[in-house]
Every structure is written in structure tokens, then in C-alpha cells.
Amino acid sequence: MILDTDFADEMKQYSGDTALECFNCGTCAALCPLFHDNFPRRMIRYVQVGAKERILENANELWRCLHCGLCTHTCPREADPGEIILGLKQMVVETRRRS
């Protein structure tokens, strides 16, 4: 996996760089009504390590998110997982539009 610590900077222009505050407890994933494949923590972890390619490869997953806010509300680190996913949607939309 390619590590890219600058990706966090890129994310700042979307919904902030709170992904780094996540300590990977998985509360968001276990509470998410989607109940799907470590979502959203998988995406958040990819942000942490800067695996942008992974995010783009699996971008469609992001739109499963209902933006119901349960993860954001319960996150022990106040890392705003829901907002991170929204930011990733924005990032993907804008990346695709640009290309």
C-alpha cells in the first residue's frame, strides 16, 4: 500500500482533516446502519494512511452512507466520521469532474 501523508492536507479543503483524530475503535462501523464491510472506518483509515487510490477504487461505497449522523454523534474521539465520508464524496465528485 502506498502511504501518502500529504493526502490529509488535500482533505482539508473538503470536510476537514478530522480523520487523523480517529483511533480506529470501530464504533462507527459497528453502529452504521449499513452494517457493511468495516464501513466507514475502512475509508477513514485509508484517509489516515493517505491511500487515495483505494478510496477512488471503492468510491461508490461512499454513496451508501445515509448521512444519518449516528457515527458522528457517537465517535469517542469526535472525529466526525459522517463528515469525513461527506468530504470524501465531495473529493470524488470533484476529482471525477476535473478528469
Binding site: 446502519p33 454513496w63 451508501r64 445515509l66 448521512h67 444519518c68 454523534h73
Partner: peptide, 22 residues
């Protein structure tokens, strides 16, 4: 209240099936 469960609404345009199960 603050701990309410989602009705599944926002997903319907992308995945109606997921929306339905929720």
C-alpha cells in the same frame, strides 16, 4: 431523539434495496 435510527431515506436514489432494509 439524538439516538434516533435512520429511516433509510437518503440512500434511496442510490440503492433503494439498502434503503428498504434499513
Amino acid at each position: 431523539q439524538v439516538f434516533t435510527s435512520c429511516c433509510g431515506g437518503p440512500a434511496e436514489s442510490v440503492s433503494p434495496a439498502l434503503s428498504r432494509s434499513i
